[in-house]
């Protein structure tokens, strides 16, 4: 697992939760973006477990050992537990999360990644390939593996949301707006995507498939793809 080289102890724990794998699982990342978020999750998860045990433990102690906390002045409790502890932890966390978020943005690159358009309408996705002359619109999203791709997400009617959990977070398709999300699949394969924003009666079935192709096969695959 890729995570293992970044945060070994967390990977161990996540491996024990092998039930977390699945075609739509954010905990089974298949690209750098989803991977970064999964790491963030495991950091927050274990920190939360510790904090919960701390607060739960204090709650138990005040009942089971009355008077144990008297050595600490009342306002000390409030300042240490209510201000200092969350203040320090949240500063670290916000900084870490913004750093990760900044890296996931579709920054302008010297070598611009290929663009694919994802257009949501009630209730299907239409993918088109402005970079590839002669490519038809497809119901399956084709991307090259191993490199970033910018997906330009638009809507023809109501708000939809483009989400391929194993590759990256989601971005909304909002009528009249044009949003870009950068995704990357590390290796060729098939990934599942859903519409994440409620969009009416067909919301449930507005799913789609992503096929990541080896870079050398990509162009041909798009041209041959079924419309």
């Amino acid at each position: 697992m890729k995570r293992a080289r970044i945060l070994p102890p967390l990977a161990l724990a996540s491996a024990s939760l092998s039930a977390c794998a699945g075609p739509l699982s954010t905990l089974d990342p298949a690209g750098p973006s989803a991977d970064a978020v999964a790491n963030l999750w495991w950091v927050m998860f274990w920190a939360s477990v510790l904090l919960f045990l701390l607060v739960g433990g204090l709650w138990a102690l005040v009942w089971l050992r009355p008077g144990f906390g008297r050595s600490l002045a009342p306002m000390r409790w409030v300042v240490l537990g209510g201000l200092v502890m969350p203040g320090v932890l949240l500063t670290l966390l916000v900084g870490f999360a913004l750093y990760i978020g900044e890296r996931l943005l579709p920054h302008a690159l010297a070598d611009p990644p290929p663009r694919v358009s994802a257009h949501g309408i009630m209730w299907q996705w239409q993918f088109s390939y402005p970079d590839i002359a002669g490519a038809a619109t497809t119901p399956t999203l084709h991307i090259p593996a191993g490199a970033p791709v910018d997906i330009v997400v638009t809507s023809g009617d109501v708000v939809h949301s483009f989400w391929v959990p194993r590759l990256a977070g989601k971005i909304d398709a909002i009528p009249g707006h044009r949003n870009v999300i950068r995704i990357q699949a590390d290796r060729p394969g098939t990934y599942e995507g859903v519409c994440a924003e409620f969009c009416g009666d067909g919301h449930t079935t507005m799913r789609f498939r992503v096929e990541a192709h080896a870079p050398q096969d990509y162009r041909q695959a798009v041209l041959e793809a079924a419309p």
Partner: peptide
């Protein structure tokens, strides 16, 4: 404190993307 907490980290990141 809230002003420091909300504005300082924010001003370091990308402006329009």
């Amino acid at each position: 404190a809230a002003s420091l907490g909300t504005f300082v980290p924010g001003l370091a990141v990308s402006l329009c993307i």
